[in-house]
């Protein structure tokens, strides 16, 4: 006799939890990038989804046109996307820091639409296939589910990057500067730290994280111009639930919401598209600063 939870065999539940963890690690890495950018620059970066898409396309293009393999792509694509981010910060966002959040939001949202439109014009919406690298072909039977090697790699890669980022920001001297810059940039500048450069590089890093997630996603999902806009709204909900700007909050909430969404897909699949937003509404009512955020 199989053990059952609310009529669902425990094996099936374990499998679904693992799937939730995979999706959660995507949410985590994307919301982490957003949280860093918001924490330091006070910019609500709506281009994040488009930058994730750019990462996937950069990987696909470098494979198709240049014959560059997955591993090189995994390094190269985030660098390209990060460089694009730096350019964007230098040329445009920099002019908006002294204005209300709304202006940054509008600019980044507009840019996201332009990027999506350009790629849609060039490649259509059905998308392009990026094959799973040979080393990750196939999978392992865990007894309760078949785990493709590539999905296992996605969990490992994104959690490693997330916690490394958290460690640098919360536990190193460089991180201390970054945090100081969010609290009081003028004072830090007075100590001889080049704050504008630090801001530019941090934005580049946040954007590169989106590009990295895009490369991770390319072999699983179709590489399409709209892949980012499908995801970005959920990721924003994750950031709001975790608390805008909270580093650890964004990681933990990302993973937790992946798991909750996974469970919803078993017990009431019709609601799996909205469950994240229901939680967001509840959190906003009960704890407006988010689960890990601080009231300012």
């Amino acid at each position: 006799m199989m053990i059952q939870v609310f009529g669902v065999p425990i094996q099936a539940l374990l499998g679904q939890l693992l799937i939730g963890l995979i999706n959660g690690s995507f949410y985590a890495i994307l919301s982490l990038g957003l949280a860093i950018i918001f924490g330091l620059l006070n910019i609500i970066n709506f281009t994040h989804g488009a930058q994730y898409m750019l990462g996937a396309f950069a990987a696909w293009m470098s494979l198709t046109y240049l014959g560059v393999n997955y591993w090189v792509g995994l390094i190269l694509a985030p660098l390209i996307v990060g460089a694009f981010g730096i350019l964007m910060e230098r040329l445009m966002l920099r002019r908006l820091y002294h204005l209300d959040h709304l202006y940054g939001l509008l600019l980044t949202f507009g840019l996201a639409l332009v990027l999506e439109g350009v790629f849609r014009q060039l490649y259509g919406v059905s998308g392009l296939s990026y094959t799973i690298p040979d080393i990750f072909q196939g999978g392992v039977n865990l007894g309760f589910m078949f785990l493709p090697y590539y999905r296992a790699w996605v969990i490992v890669a994104s959690l490693t990057v997330c916690f490394a980022t958290w460690f640098v920001i919360e536990r190193t001297k460089l991180g201390a500067y970054l945090r100081a810059a969010t609290e009081n940039p003028e004072l830090l500048q007075a100590f001889g730290v080049n704050v504008p450069l630090m801001i530019t590089l941090t934005f580049g890093y946040g954007v590169a994280l989106a590009g990295f997630a895009g490369v991770l996603a390319a072999p699983i999902y179709q590489v399409t111009p709209v892949m980012g806009s499908n995801l970005i709204i959920v990721v924003f909900a994750v950031v709001v639930i975790g608390g805008m700007g909270s580093i650890l909050g964004s990681i933990v909430t990302g993973i937790a919401l992946g798991l909750i969404e996974g469970m919803t897909k078993v017990f009431y699949p019709e609601a799996s598209g909205v469950v994240v937003f229901v939680i967001m509404a509840l959190v906003l009512l009960l704890r407006p600063a988010g689960l890990f955020g601080r009231e300012k």
Binding site: P9, A12, G15, Q16, I19, G20, I22, N23, M145, F146, R151, I220, Y221, M227, N230, L231, G262, K265, V266, P269, E270, S272, G273, V274
Partner: peptide
């Protein structure tokens, strides 16, 4: 299983189909 529209990750639904 009724999947929300549109949807990108079908692995959960596919596993239910497999089971």
């Amino acid at each position: 299983v009724k999947a929300p529209f549109p949807n990108t990750d079908f692995s959960s639904f596919l596993m239910q189909a497999q089971a």
